[in-house]
């Protein structure tokens, strides 16, 4: 079979696929962060912990209640999103009028509490979560074998990203949201319940994180630290894509996952740092991010 730059194509396509899967998680997570940032102007540090919580809730649903993957894909984001709304109402609301750095610090503290709680009850070792029966197996594409579940992750991520984009850019609810981002006082003068909108938005962003967590459960082991390092890469993705930009989050997420995958093939030593290097370059050339507005 042919070789590309001395790399066997199976290895190349394998890494491209892994890159796209990582990219799918980056995209869904940074999308949630972007949605939250857009309206609340805060960076939700707890996003990684809530992603982990999403995976754990799916595992708990299966283990304690026998609720299968398909139901967990909906139920877990609803539960974690609900927890998110409680967090917004009780903890973030009082900080609304203060410097947004306080909200960042609060969500950082929250991360420690959530991670600590799960570590306390479940230890740091991973819990296995089976791939749902309908999605096991592989497809032979001729040039490589494609595990069905991995393809499923990418498809689901694309659907969710598109759905979110559509919701925000093309629906009436989305237009309220965008208006409230621009000028919350004016929007509330029109009789729209902005505090409620904020709570729902935070809940939605958190639910996206939990959804990513459920998708991740069968491929990564479910453990309390699974979101720890991931979230910081996602921060870099957001800086590159442009803070608060929906399109930047989605495209940035997928393409940076891909770049990371390719780096693994051609220069594996740099694969963990490549995204940060790109971030530094973007900051040099366009500090507001590729899709960001000037700040």
């Amino acid at each position: 079979m042919f070789e590309l730059l001395g790399i066997p194509p199976q290895a190349l396509f394998g890494q491209v696929l892994l890159g796209l899967i990582n990219g799918a998680f980056y995209a869904v997570l940074s999308l949630g962060l972007a949605v939250i940032f857009g309206l609340l102007n805060i960076i939700n540090f707890a996003h990684g912990a809530l992603y982990m919580m999403g995976a754990f809730v799916a595992w708990m649903l299966l283990t304690y209640l026998g609720i299968p993957f398909w139901a967990a894909l909906v139920v877990s984001p609803l539960i974690v999103g609900g927890i998110g709304m409680v967090i917004e109402r009780t903890l973030l609301r009082p900080l609304h009028e203060l410097d947004h750095l306080y909200s960042l610090l609060l969500t950082f503290g929250l991360t420690l509490v959530i991670a600590g709680l799960f570590q306390n009850f479940y230890g740091v070792s991973g819990k296995p979560y089976p791939i749902p029966a309908a999605l096991t197996g592989v497809i032979n594409l001729g040039f490589m074998f494609l595990p069905i579940y991995r393809a499923f992750i990418i498809v689901m991520a694309v659907i969710v990203c598109f759905g979110t984009w559509f919701l925000i850019e093309k629906t009436r609810l989305g237009s309220y949201l965008r208006a409230a981002t621009e000028n919350p006082e004016m929007v509330s003068a029109f009789g729209i319940n902005v505090p409620m909108l904020i709570t729902l938005t935070y809940g939605f962003g958190v639910a996206l994180a939990a959804f990513a967590g459920v998708l991740a459960a069968p491929v990564y082991s479910v453990n309390p630290v699974m979101g720890n390092d991931l979230i910081i890469v996602v921060f870099a993705v957001i800086v590159i894509g442009g803070m608060g930009s929906i399109i930047g989050a989605i495209l940035g997420g997928f393409s940076l996952g891909l770049v990371e995958g390719l780096t693994k093939v051609f220069y594996p030593e740099a694969s963990t740092t490549i995204i940060f290097v790109i971030m530094a370059l973007v900051l040099l050339l366009k500090p507001s991010g590729i899709f960001g507005r000037e700040v």
């Binding site: 610090l105 609060l106 503290g109 991360t111 420690l112 509490v113 600590g116 709680l117």
Partner: peptide, 10 residues
């Protein structure tokens, strides 16, 4: 310790 630290933070 992690939980307590997080609580103190909050």
């Amino acid at each position: 310790v992690l939980i307590i630290q997080g609580m103190v933070f909050i």
